[in-house]
Design a binder for these strands. Structure first.
Length: 532
RNA sequence: GCCCUCGUAGCUCAGUUGGAUAGAGCAGCGGACUUCUAAUCCGCCGGUCGCAGGUUCGAAUCCUGCCGAGGGCGCCA
């Protein structure tokens, strides 16, 4: 519709002797009384044209009413100078065909065609189970990847396995101690899982190797149950053993971005806006955590990715500047490296905070969260909000049966649509082919509202990608569900009083709504059961 | 002290990148099933968009300064 209205406005402006702006904005007003579409061109152009915005808008409206674009039945001026378009409801009827023809591809685009993107997320240490705090980044990263694919990007998802360094040594020592029936070392891991895993560990196994495998098995399984799967679990140890560290250091030295001082090797990160230069190799010869990380990102670029998106928890944001500096030090475009910081989730039970403490052992694991809340509810609840905002989740309210739980609302809308098909089949009713159905009988506001929502999906998906904001899809699918419930309530399909032609039209409307719900739920990674 | 994110209805959160009368859900009150799932729908109640300036036709949104919350500022990861 924009593609029709924008040229019409441009022509009208030219006809009035006004230079059209580079970009003419068309929006859908929040209030229905303001029409189906609206433009602020008159306000934008008023100054440069040296005219009163309302007068300009009035002249535009008159010109457009002379030869109205398709579907436009009225052009009105309102407020300080908005040009509002009122459309024949028929413009929405074509949405049904668009949705049905595209099916599960409705809303898919090729915007990102040819771009290779790597999304790295979760990347928890392989020293224990993933905990509840990892869930937000997990569902965010996964959903973002789904949206990237849906917008045509070539996407890979990776989990960086920090399987080297001090933490791993401590983890292995803790496992070995428990196996020997002793207490873990002073700074060791004391969680109950250590004791449990130690009892599983066969004699003669290297606790580091075995322990890592055990942790990864556990993490992979839980994340899988959450619906999250990675293309690769990238091992730091394997990378270091391959000589990537030396190659990275040599590369940095060649570029004069690394230097020796005080017995250590430093990254010249201040050259790219970092607060201070950072140590890469400590004076005792050990690498800092930074150096392997740089090597990892160098490897990502070597593999031909055009865009690297990293999803990190809020506690790592201080790390962004130095990593971006390192990217630039390697000669890469800093724009090709993005970090999405997810703010913390505060878990409550009956209004009281539940602590996710790390080493003490009494932590809420992702498994606990999944068992209590369920994967679909975790995903929808977490993805309903922007990751920029700290989030509070009350576990008691999100568990099944509660109205706080968005899962039921959305999934029930889908189930209701499928119940129409089921009951229709029982009664032996048959749906006519779409091209033989007259959709013009769809005039009820409930019907039109469903179509308006469906119409919005392609824009919503693009926005979700451009803003790295999966929650836009979640709020959309919830709104669509709301429209579906209203339609279901007020517009019976199979009721004997519903005329045949209206039944057929509504049936196809329901079909397209079901497709929309399925697509939306699919993008956030939640299931769309046909009955509840 | 410096940096990041945030502050919107009693609670949890949206807000189409600067648009018109700031929206949902929950909680509260009152209604709606002889109809395809009432886990639904409708109505009412509820606001100094943290505070103060500024930018302009127009600000929850942008700029500055305060106030407040969370997180971060290691030769730790």
């Amino acid at each position: 519709m924009r593609n029709v209205l924008i040229p019409a406005l441009r022509d009208a402006l030219v006809g009035l002797g006004v230079d059209p702006p580079v970009e003419i904005q068309i929006e859908q007003p929040a209030h229905r009384e303001h029409g189906d579409f609206s433009s602020n061109v008159a306000l934008v152009c008023a100054k440069s044209a040296g005219r009163n915005p309302r007068d300009l808008a009035t002249q535009l409206a008159e010109a457009l009413e002379q030869s109205p674009p398709p579907f436009v039945i009225a052009v009105e001026v309102a407020g300080p100078g908005f040009v509002n378009f009122r459309l024949d409801p028929a413009w929405l009827h074509q949405v049904v065909g668009a949705v049905v023809d595209a099916g599960d591809d409705y809303g898919r685009s090729a915007e990102g065609a040819g771009r290779k993107v790597l999304v790295e997320y979760v990347s928890a240490n392989p020293t224990g189970p993933v905990h509840a705090g990892h869930a937000r980044g997990a569902v965010y990263g996964d959903s973002l990847a789904r949206i990237l694919r849906f917008t045509g990007h070539d996407v890979s998802e990776e989990f960086y396995v920090n399987d080297r360094g001090v933490q791993m040594q401590v983890f292995a020592a803790s496992l070995a101690a428990r196996k020997a029936g002793e207490e873990p070392p002073e700074e060791g891991y004391r969680g109950a899982y250590i004791t449990e895993w130690a009892s599983e560990m066969p004699d003669g196994e290297d606790p580091l190797i075995w322990g890592e495998a055990r942790a990864l098995l556990d993490q992979r399984e839980v994340l899988g149950d959450l619906g999250v799967a990675f293309d690769d679990w990238f091992s730091e140890r394997r990378m270091v053993n391959s000589g990537a560290i030396d190659a990275t250091l040599a590369d940095l030295r060649d570029r004069d971005m690394a230097f020796d001082d005080d017995g250590a090797v430093w990254l010249r990160s201040t050259r790219f806006g970092d607060d201070k230069d950072r140590v890469l190799v400590k004076s005792d010869g050990e690498y800092t955590y930074l150096l392997p990380d740089i090597a990892y990102h160098r490897d990502k670029f070597d593999r031909g990715f055009d865009l690297l998106i990293n999803v990190w928890g809020a506690d790592h944001h201080g790390y962004v500047a130095r990593m971006r500096a390192a990217i630039q030090a390697l000669g890469h475009d800093p724009e090709a490296f993005e970090v999405v910081i997810t703010q913390l989730v505060r878990l409550e039970r009956d209004g009281v905070e539940v602590k996710i403490s790390k080493r003490s052992g009494d932590l809420i694991t992702m498994r606990d969260l999944l068992d209590e809340v369920g994967a679909d509810a975790v995903r929808l609840t977490y993805l309903l909000q922007s990751v920029d905002s700290p989030q509070t989740v009350d576990l008691d309210l999100v568990v099944a049966q509660s109205n706080e739980n968005p899962v039921f609302y959305v999934q029930m809308a889908n189930a209701r649509i499928h119940s129409i098909d089921r009951v229709a089949a029982e009664r032996g009713l048959v749906r006519s082919p779409l091209d033989q159905v007259d959709l013009s009988v769809l005039t009820h506001d409930r019907e039109l509202e469903v179509l308006r929502q469906l119409h919005a999906l392609p824009d919503v998906v693009l926005l979700a990608w451009r803003e790295r904001a999966p929650h836009k899809v979640t709020t959309w699918v919830r709104d669509l569900a709301g429209a579906v419930h209203g339609f279901y309530h007020d517009c019976p399909v199979l009721h004997p009083d519903t005329p045949d032609d209206l039944r057929q039209a509504r049936w196809w409307l329901a079909e397209s709504a079901g497709i929309g719900l399925r697509v939306g739920l699919g993008l956030v990674g939640a299931s769309a059961p046909e009955s509840m």
